[in-house]
Simulated scan of single mutants.
Amino acid sequence: MTNSNSAPAVSYFIADLHLADNRPDITACFISFLQHQAPHAEKLFILGDLFEYWLGDDDDSPFVASIATALKTLSAQTEIFFIQGNRDFLLGKAFAKRSGMTLLPDVEKISLYQQELVILHGDTLCTRDVAYQAFRKKSRSWWWQGIMKNLPLFLRKRIAENYRRKSAASTAMKSQDIMDVTQEEVERVMAEQQVNLMIHGHTHRPAVHHFTSDNNARTRVVLGDWYDQGSWLKFTPHGYELLNQPFDKS
Rank of each mutant, 00 (worst) to 15 (best):
M148V: 13
C126M: 02
A94D: 06
S99H: 11
D106S: 13
G100E: 07
S139P: 06
A131T: 11
T102M: 02
T102P: 05
L117E: 01
R136P: 08
S99F: 11
C126H: 05
W142S: 12
L103S: 06
R128E: 10
S139A: 12
Y132V: 05
A96S: 12
C126N: 03
Y132E: 06
D123F: 02
R140P: 09
L104Q: 14
A131I: 10
L103K: 01
Y113D: 03
I110C: 10
G100K: 08
D129P: 10
W143Y: 09
F95P: 03
Y132L: 06
I119L: 12
R140M: 15
A134P: 01
E116P: 02
R128S: 05
F135W: 15
Q145E: 04
L125R: 04
A131F: 00
K149G: 00
L104D: 09
S111W: 04
K93Q: 12
L125A: 05
L117S: 12
L112D: 07
N150Q: 08
G122C: 01
L103T: 10
Y113R: 00
Q115K: 15
Q115V: 13
T127L: 06
L125W: 12
L103Y: 00
I119W: 05
K109R: 15
Q145H: 04
R128G: 01
W142C: 13
K149I: 00
E116Y: 04
R140G: 09
L91G: 08
G92V: 07
W142Y: 05
K93T: 07
G146K: 11
Q145S: 03
K137C: 01
Q114H: 12
L125P: 14
C126T: 02
E116F: 01
D106L: 06
